[in-house]
Computed example of a mutant assay.
Amino acid sequence: MERGLHHGPRPVRGAPRARIRRRRERRQGVRAKAPRSLPSRRSAPQESLGAGRDQLDHPHPDRLDDDQAQQLKAVLARCPELEQTAQHIRAFAELMNNREGRHLGQWIDRVQADDLPALHSFVNGLGQDLDAVVAGLSLRYSSGAVEGHNNKIKMLKRQMFGRANFDLLRKRVLLAA
C-alpha cells in the first residue's frame, strides 16, 4: 500500500467542530446556547472559606460540626483500612505538631504491623533518611526562610529569561532580598 492514498472519506480540514456544529444548528433552526460564564471569585460564598487557610478544604477532625462528624464516622465505619490509615496519619500529625521525633521509630513499627501498602511506601521513604526526618520532627529550626528566598530567586529568573543579561538579573535579585 502506498503512502498518501486515502481509502474512504477524506478528513475535513480547516473547520473546527464548533463551527460545524453552529452551521448545522443554523440549518436546523436550532438556536445555539449562550456559553455559560464562570462565577467570579467575589461571588463565591464567604462562609465556605472557613476561618483559616488550613481549613479551606480539610478542617481538623476536632473542628467538624455534628453533621460532618457523622459523615466522617460513617465513611470510616465502611472501610476499616481507611480508619487505620486515618489513625496513623493523626498520630504522625501529633508527632509533627508536638516535635516528638524520638517516637518516630515506634510509629513506624505500628504502621508496618498493619497491612496498608500506601503507608508502607511512605515509611520506606522516611527510612531512607531517618536521621534527617527525626531531626526535622524534633528541632525547632526550620529552613522555611531559605526555601522562600530560593523560590523568589527562581521566580525572578523565570521572569527575566531571554529579556536581559546577568547584570540586570543580579540587580533584581539583590533588590528583592
Rank of each mutant, 00 (worst) to 15 (best):
T85R: 03
C79T: 15
R27W: 14
E47W: 08
A32Y: 10
R13M: 10
E100G: 10
Q84D: 14
S143T: 11
A91W: 02
P117N: 06
R27I: 12
F161M: 08
E83F: 07
A113W: 05
R21A: 09
P45A: 13
L95Q: 02
L116F: 00
F92D: 01
S37C: 11
R10V: 09
S121A: 15
L104G: 00
G52K: 07
H7A: 08
L168Y: 12
Q68D: 10
S143Q: 12
A113Q: 12
D129N: 11
Q46A: 14
L139R: 08
L174R: 08
L130C: 06
A32L: 10
K73T: 09
G14W: 03
R172E: 01
H120Y: 05
L169A: 01
E47I: 03
L72N: 01
N97E: 14
R24K: 08
L119E: 00
K152A: 15
Q55I: 02
D65V: 06
V75F: 06
Q112M: 07
E47A: 14
F161L: 10
R36F: 05
A18N: 03
H88V: 12
V75C: 03
L119T: 01
Q71T: 12
G4N: 06
G8S: 04
L156I: 13
G14N: 03
G29E: 05
A44P: 00
N165A: 15
H6R: 09
L168N: 10
Q71R: 14
A135S: 12
P11E: 03
R26W: 09
G50H: 00
V111F: 00
G162N: 00
